[in-house]
Simulated assay, not measured.
Amino acid sequence: MDGGGRVLFAVRGDRSEDFAAYGAPASAASAEGVVLPRPLRRVVRFIVSLCSGRIAIPAHAGKVSFVGFYSAIAVYGVVIGGHGPAVSHALTSFAGFAIEDVKVTGNEQTSEIDILQLLGLDGSTSLLGLDITAARQSLSDLPWVESAEVRKIYPSTVEVVLRERKAYGIWQHGTELSLIEKSGSVIAPLRDNKFASLPLFVGRDAETAASDVETEFAKFPEIASRVKAYVRVAGRRWDIHLDNGVVVKLPEDGVAGALERLSRLDADQQLLSRDIAAVDLRLSDRTTVQLTPEAQERRLVAVEERRKALKKAGQSI
Rank of each mutant, 00 (worst) to 15 (best):
A196Q: 10
F220P: 02
S225I: 10
K228L: 09
R232I: 04
W238A: 06
P189R: 06
F217D: 03
G203K: 05
F195Q: 04
Y230I: 07
A224E: 07
R204K: 15
V186A: 06
K219E: 01
I187N: 02
K194Y: 11
K194A: 03
A206M: 14
F195N: 13
R204L: 04
S211W: 12
P199H: 10
L200G: 01
V233T: 11
F195A: 09
T215P: 02
P221M: 00
A218E: 08
N193W: 11
A210S: 10
A206W: 08
P199T: 05
P199N: 07
A224V: 00
Y230A: 01
W238R: 10
P221N: 01
T208A: 08
A210K: 03
A206V: 05
N193D: 15
S225E: 14
N193T: 15
D205W: 13
S197E: 10
K228G: 07
I187S: 03
S225W: 02
V231Q: 12
V213S: 00
L190V: 12
E214C: 10
A196V: 13
A196S: 15
D212R: 13
K194S: 12
R236Y: 14
D192C: 03
A196D: 14
K194C: 04
T208K: 13
A209F: 15
F195Y: 15
W238H: 11
D205V: 07
E207T: 06
R204H: 13
W238D: 03
R236N: 10
A206Y: 08
R191C: 02
D192W: 11
V227Q: 09
I223H: 05
V213H: 00
A234T: 11
L190W: 03
D205E: 14
P189T: 00
A210C: 04
A188P: 05
T208W: 07
A224Q: 13
R191I: 12
D212P: 09
R237G: 06
G203Q: 12
S211R: 08
L198C: 03
P199W: 07
V202K: 12
R204A: 12
S225G: 11
E214Y: 00
F217W: 02
T215S: 07
F217M: 05
N193S: 14
K228C: 04
F217A: 02
E207M: 04
A210D: 01
F220V: 13
R232P: 13
E222M: 07
F201E: 05
N193L: 11
L198A: 05
L200A: 03
V186H: 01
S197G: 15
K194E: 05
A188R: 10
V202G: 01
R226P: 00
R236S: 14
G203H: 13
E214L: 12
F195H: 14
A234C: 08
A224H: 06
L198W: 04
A209I: 00
R204E: 12
V186I: 15
A210Y: 00
A210P: 00
V186C: 09
V213W: 00
R204I: 12
S185T: 03
A218Y: 02
R236D: 15
V227K: 13
G203A: 08
